[in-house]
């Protein structure tokens, strides 16, 4: 996301920081990969549906070609212990990356109640109780939304959104 912001906002000047964060808000809320959702929004805002389609292709096609090539190579070398060992190492290193990303995206949520409770309830439901994802989303989801239902005494709820403007706003600016 830092790269995306660097290119879209600073180098190409296709959008302002504020537009970027608005786009981020939409793409975070919807299902799907963030990078792909961002491509749809940026492409659509700049050039309509064809822009969105091309932006998504641009985001996915190079990686798709590489991953397919690797997949075909892997199919024919699956018995090679060196390849297996390498992929085992990559998976282990990826765990470290996933830990970092989860912690960074959730840094606000890990610090406040009831978010911590929702995080752990979701984790336990999926990883310990092995409940199916639709069931988890349809039970914990509405409960979580109701916990944050609109309330006249909490008008500034939006300020604690994960990507609300202000938080990253100054960080990448010089």
């Amino acid at each position: 996301m830092a790269y995306l912001r660097e290119y879209l906002v600073r180098r190409e000047e296709w959008m302002t920081d504020e537009q970027f964060l608005d786009a981020m808000e939409v793409s975070e809320t919807l299902p799907g990969l963030n990078a792909v959702n961002m491509s749809v929004i940026v492409g659509d805002d700049l050039r309509g549906v064809p822009g969105a389609a091309l932006a998504v292709l641009g985001m996915l096609l190079p990686g798709a070609i590489v991953v397919m090539t690797l997949g075909i190579l892997w199919e024919s070398n699956r018995q090679n212990p060196l390849i297996t060992r390498l992929l085992e190492g990559v998976a282990a290193a990826a765990v470290g990356l996933l830990m970092t990303v989860t912690l960074q995206l959730g840094r606000r949520q890990f610090r406040q109640f009831p978010d911590i409770a929702i995080i752990f309830a979701t984790f336990i439901a999926v990883s310990v109780l092995k409940l199916s994802l639709p069931l988890v989303l349809l039970t914990i989801g509405p409960i979580a939304v109701l916990l944050y239902r609109p309330h006249p005494s909490r008008p500034h709820l939006g300020e604690s959104l994960p990507f609300h403007r202000g938080e990253h706003h100054e960080k990448h600016r010089r």
Partner: peptide, 8 residues
């Protein structure tokens, strides 16, 4: 706001 911790 509610779905953010679910996603995490």
């Amino acid at each position: 706001r509610g779905m953010a911790p679910v996603a995490i």
